[in-house]
Amino acid sequence: MDLENQAAIKSIADEIGSENLMVVLGMPGEGLRLAVETLTTGDPSWAGPLAGVSLGLPVFHILEEKVRTRVPEELYAEKLLMMEMVLDLPQIESDLADMRAAG
């Protein structure tokens, strides 16, 4: 996860408290895994502002069933439907399930 995004999220968490913040991501694969790790236990590369900082934020993917079903239908068709066909949804669901199970 790039350093600027880490800094931005840390700054919001400092301002409003991590208990008032959740993060919705859009990327799949290894990028998703690294972002989840960074936002929960800390930056695994130890390079960014979240190195050694365990924010423990709830993290979701925009195309997870429980998130995407809450997006208004028209907006979904305009902004997300095409990405739903592009990304591997079952893989995203299963990656997130594995990460959540691992804590």
Binding site: P28, G29, E30, G31, R33, L34
Partner: peptide, 10 residues
């Protein structure tokens, strides 16, 4: 892809 995938770039 063999260059991109190990770096998590898809």
């Amino acid at each position: 892809p063999e260059i991109m995938l190990p770096a998590g770039a898809g």
